[in-house]
């Protein structure tokens, strides 16, 4: 009884969609029916009944193939507008039988999983890309399977929404350049302190060109950058807001990179990097209205 109750519950969860092969089955059934009926050919009748019965029996087997699959959207790496990111979905077969011929769809992404043995979690990485900041989601997270006979597409939708946050595109003047400019303006640039790895965010004027001959390109680090005072950023809302958000995002990322704390003032609210965390602050920027 339990089996049937469970089967009916599962059946409700799993959608079934006929494929082109099912059209072929219908045509085959029609042709076989004509041949069998008109000539009373029992061999043809038997093939006809087999085709029908196999197509019929494939349903429960296909449903039970997906019935024990649990999907969870784990989350994504930081996704910046205009840039890509990676999201993770785990699949877990809680049943006792291996699930076969699965395809995980998330938006445009598709990952094929030939078999999913029971009890072993399977992690799938999906690429994501967004144009603008804010909340985004994979349009339709689902597992599909054509198992066993390809005549029906069994679809199991994920309970969770595959949602992730897209941070503003980190764009603008680099923190180093900005602070350098600020320091030059106040004659406070200070002394050249040492070399650090060039990661592309620093101004070209800071590149330590002799390092070109080495394997790693380096840039000069100035004393003012390691000063203990935390940078304080303010969302002024004076210019183009998107541009400003992008600028702030860039500085926040740079601060994280060089390991300095900062504060961000947004609409009178002050957020501290060591308290709210970088992701929290970036989320505030992403969802800023």
């Amino acid at each position: 009884m339990n089996f049937f109750r469970r089967f009916i519950q599962t059946r409700r969860r799993i959608r079934q969609k006929a494929t082109a092969f099912s059209a072929m089955v219908v045509i085959a059934l029609f042709a076989l029916f004509l041949e069998a009926y008109m000539h009373n050919f029992n061999i043809v009748y038997i093939v006809f009944f087999f085709v029908f019965a196999l197509a019929f029996s494939a349903g429960p087997i296909g449903i039970s193939n997906l019935s024990d699959i649990e999907m969870r959207f784990v989350g994504c790496t930081r996704v910046f507008a205009g840039e890509g990111g990676e999201c993770t979905v785990t699949l877990h077969n809680t049943g006792r039988r291996t699930a076969w011929a699965l395809r995980l769809y998330a938006g445009e992404e598709m990952v094929e999983i030939a078999k999913l043995p029971p009890g072993v979690p399977y992690t799938v990485t999906l690429k994501c890309r967004a144009v603008s900041r804010g909340r985004s989601a994979f349009s339709d997270c689902r597992v599909e399977s054509l198992f066993p006979l390809s005549t029906v597409r069994f679809i199991l939708h994920m309970k969770d929404r595959c949602e992730y946050i897209v941070y503003p595109e980190p764009k603008g003047i680099s923190l180093e350049a900005y602070r350098s400019k600020m320091a030059t303006g106040t004659s406070e640039e200070g002394d050249f302190e040492g070399l650090i790895r060039y990661d592309g965010t620093q101004s070209l004027s800071r590149i330590y060109w002799p390092s070109m001959v080495m394997e790693e390109l380096q840039s000069k680090r100035f004393e003012y950058l390691s000063k203990s005072d935390k940078p304080h950023f303010t969302l002024s809302r004076q210019e183009d807001i998107e541009k400003e958000l992008s600028q702030l995002t860039l500085w926040i990322v740079e601060c994280e990179k060089i390991g300095i704390d900062f504060t961000l003032e947004m609409d009178g609210r002050i957020m501290k990097s060591d308290k709210e965390g970088i992701d929290g602050i970036l989320e505030s920027l992403a969802l800023y209205r």
Partner: peptide, 13 residues
């Protein structure tokens, strides 16, 4: 799959 379909084939036949 085959075993599941046999009874249906018998009944239909």
């Amino acid at each position: 799959l085959f075993a599941f379909s046999i009874p249906w084939v018998v009944l239909l036949f």
